Simulated scan of single mutants.
Amino acid sequence: MTDLPRTTPSQTVGPFFALPDGLPWPDGPEVVGTEEPDAILLRGQLIDGAGEPVPDGLIEIWQADERGRIQHPDDPRDDSTSFRGFGRCATNAEGRFWFRTVKPGALPTPSGGTEAPHINVTVLARGMLDRVVTRIYFPDEPRANAVDPVLSAVDPERRATLVAVPETEAFRFDIRLQGDDETPFFAV
């Protein structure tokens, strides 16, 4: 039986195969390579309801390219992209995660409007019955953020928790699963 993958202890979600062996993604957190001139770093920490880091979480991102194009059959635009726009990162012992990507462009809405540039985020972690989904918005898009239909639906006092914070050579986006400054999550 030594050929079988080892599993994590039984949890509400799972059991998962122990990371990083399980749920592999070939490029991990590298949505774009280091040679990409417009690459940005996105860093953060996954924090539980008691304010403690979550060392066994999994963060996934999915996004459009810098022109707002997505690689998906539902994107009807004829100049679709080959940009995959997906990354996956397990949290480390301090609950930290990171991604190298590009800042996405604005996306059209079905009603003819526009969504502000954003990155979709999925979080899986111990003790959760299901994944949670949120978004990361950018601080240099105040006008677009003000009219984004999803961000506008969030309580004004909580909107700032969805906007990344600029740091030296990176953006920071911490995810709080519960408690003070809990990250807003969306039903999808």
Results as ranks from 00 to 15, higher is better:
M1I: 14
D3M: 12
D3S: 10
L4W: 12
P5F: 13
T7P: 05
P9N: 06
S10R: 14
Q11I: 01
T12H: 06
V13T: 14
F16K: 13
A18P: 00
L19Q: 03
G22E: 10
P24Q: 12
P26S: 13
G28S: 10
G28H: 02
E30Q: 12
E30D: 15
V32K: 08
V32E: 11
V32M: 11
P37F: 07
A39R: 11
I40R: 10
R43V: 14
G44N: 12
G44S: 08
Q45R: 14
D48I: 07
G49K: 12
G49A: 15
A50F: 02
A50L: 11
G51H: 07
G51M: 10
G51I: 11
G51Y: 05
P55C: 03
L58E: 13
L58C: 15
E60V: 01
E60F: 04
I61Q: 01
W62G: 09
Q63R: 00
Q63L: 15
D65V: 03
E66P: 00
R69Y: 03
H72T: 04
R77D: 12
R77Y: 06
D78Y: 03
S80Y: 00
S80T: 13
T81L: 12
T81G: 09
T81Y: 07
F83S: 13
G85T: 02
G85F: 07
G85P: 12
F86N: 06
G87V: 13
R88Q: 15
W98R: 09
F99G: 08
R100V: 02
R100Q: 14
R100A: 08
T101K: 06
T101F: 08
T101H: 05
V102C: 00
K103A: 08
P104G: 06
A106E: 14
A106T: 09
L107F: 09
P108W: 00
P110H: 06
S111M: 02
T114N: 00
A116P: 04
P117L: 12
V121S: 04
V123G: 03
L124Y: 14
A125K: 04
R126T: 15
R131A: 15
R131C: 11
V132F: 02
P139E: 08
D140K: 02
E141T: 12
P142N: 03
P142G: 04
R143Q: 11
R143Y: 01
R143D: 09
R143W: 00
A144W: 01
N145D: 04
P149L: 01
A153M: 02
V154K: 05
D155N: 01
R158P: 03
P166H: 11
E167V: 08
E167P: 06
E169W: 03
R172T: 15
F173P: 05
D174P: 01
R176H: 14
L177S: 04
L177M: 13
Q178M: 11
Q178K: 10
D181T: 07
P184K: 00
F185M: 10
F186H: 06
